[in-house]
Design a protein around this nucleic acid. Structure first.
Length: 433
RNA sequence: GGAGGAGUGGCCGAGCGGUCUAAGGCAGCGGACUUGAAAUCCGCCGUGUCCGCAAGGGCACCGAGGGUUCGAAUCCCUCCUCCUCCGCCA
């Protein structure tokens, strides 16, 4: 059903055509539903009139009352039968319309680069200068080698207890992980975000509202057997879901939330160099920024979220670049997405460390989150815009720190802003017990 | 985990088969009175959706979903949430 609503491989050339067909299909489905809805409402009006008529039967002459009652009951029965079959049709039509709608991704920002490959992202800028390891006289190792030599991470035990791509952080890595969380939460609070810790599980319905696909074949989401709960892949889900069905006042916007949660991802089908060590794991901890705004505010807010992400990694003194993500890589909900990619000397390439998306009203429509515009008269509620951004994902940040702060003697310097919580300026060398 | 109780408009709260077009109160908005304010009085005061240029009208919503009935906020079933007590536990 509706295969024609999914773009094919040559979507860029066929894009306009596909869009026109999709719109036509949606219009047809909508008209079909509304036609049935109108008939259903008329039928219900008759039902209401019939039961109202029953009330006045008592004012008829006694000898006519029984006959009139019987007539109305018979009529009511008939109407009920008709109404039920019409309701089934109406519900089916509504489902067809909504399913078609759910498959339509968000619109795309005019400036978003078009394309489907990593080469199609637009690099907006580079900030910070990568260290010249050759000049320092040594070859940088990847974070896993650094971490293992300092006994900071144990993947073997993680595999034994929970499976591959699970891990234990050890020693100063634990403190680094916590220091990153604390630092990011501090920055978020200073920018006016209300701090939250969130549930690490959420109902499927909420996941769907945020545009995630909880139980698909290649789902990134762990689900809990015999329940409708899933492990969250990001606090975006729990923060966004907090206000489902709410109608906010315009003065409350923009509403800024920060959430600390564990994040769980199945990482189905990913492997290779990119997934080595802490870069791609099943569980990590993340501080997430979330914003509810008016439609007019969302673009400015998106820039603000990006600026906060940059502030954090500038404070950590990690070189990075900013990408304007290409249309084919946006996913369903995002209207525009910026990624920060840190320079990772161990692999000699950039790697994603944060991502911020403007989802405009895509999630708000599914979660029914609206606001009442101020002003005179009785303005109808409008959908809010919803945006999210990573303040810090600790596992990825650890990769960047270990690789950028490694020293020739095998130790790792601690970023200055984290030193108060880690309690020392340098990690290692360690004497193995 | 066990046993009870409860979910009604922004909030409190009545209603427990047809008079619900959901009482009453609080908050809010407009007005009268007042130099101004308070107090008092009068009026307004949910959401969604459909038809309509509009005025206006229809339909739905009393935690969610099913059911019984000519007719359900009201009766029955399932689920969700909250409260109380017991047990267990960080």
């Amino acid at each position: 059903m509706f295969e024609d609503l999914a773009p094919g491989a040559d979507a860029d050339s066929a894009g306009a055509d596909w869009a026109a067909q999709t719109v036509a299909r949606l219009v047809d489905l909508d008209a079909a539903y509304l036609g049935l809805l109108r008939r259903q409402d008329e039928l219900r009006q008759q039902q209401n009139q019939t039961s109202a008529a029953m009330k006045s039967v008592g004012s008829l002459p006694k000898d006519q009352q029984a006959a009139e009652r019987a007539r109305l009951i018979e009529q009511g029965k008939q109407l009920r039968t008709d109404e039920r079959s019409l309701v089934d049709q109406t519900e089916a039509a509504l489902r067809a319309r909504d399913e078609a709608w759910a498959r339509v991704p968000n619109l795309t920002h005019a400036e978003t680069p078009r394309g489907r490959t990593d080469d199609d992202h637009r690099e907006l800028r580079r900030v910070g200068t990568p260290r010249d390891f050759a000049a320092e006289g040594f070859t940088p190792r990847d974070h896993l080698a650094v971490a293992e030599s300092l006994d900071l991470v144990d993947f073997e035990a993680g595999a034994r207890v929970a499976g591959q791509k699970f891990y234990y952080l050890k020693h100063e890595a634990v403190l680094l992980d916590l220091a990153l969380q604390h630092f990011a939460l501090g920055v978020a609070a200073r920018h006016g975000f209300a701090l939250h810790t969130t549930p690490d599980l959420a109902r499927e319905e909420i996941l769907r509202g945020l545009g995630f696909q909880p139980r698909g074949e290649s789902s990134q989401i762990y689900s809990v057997a015999d329940s409708d709960l899933c492990l969250v892949g990001t606090a975006e889900i729990t923060l966004g879901g907090m206000l489902a069905d709410a109608i906010l006042e315009e003065e409350q916007l923009p509403l800024l939330l920060a959430g600390l949660s564990h994040c769980f991802r199945t990482e189905a089908g990913s492997a290779g160099q990119e997934s080595k060590g802490l870069y791609r794991v099943h569980q990590f901890t993340k501080v997430e920024l979330f914003a509810f705004t008016t439609p007019e505010q969302s673009e400015t807010m998106h820039a603000r979220l990006l600026a906060i992400e940059e502030e954090i990694f500038q404070a950590l003194k990690i070189p990075y670049r900013v990408l304007d993500i290409a249309s084919g890589d946006l996913g369903g909900p995002a209207f525009r997405k910026f990624d920060l990619e840190a320079w990772m000397p161990g692999r000699g390439a950039h790697g994603e460390i944060t991502s911020t998306s403007n989802c405009t009203d895509y999630q708000a429509r599914r979660l029914r989150i609206r606001y009442r515009p101020g002003g005179d008269g009785k303005p109808k509620p409008r959908h809010v815009h919803m945006l999210n951004g990573t303040a810090v994902a600790t596992s990825r940040a650890l990769v960047a720190i270990l690789e950028n702060y490694q020293q020739q003697d095998g130790t790792v310097a601690v970023p200055e802003v984290l030193q108060p919580l880690v309690g020392k300026p340098v990690i290692g060398p360690r004497r193995r017990a």
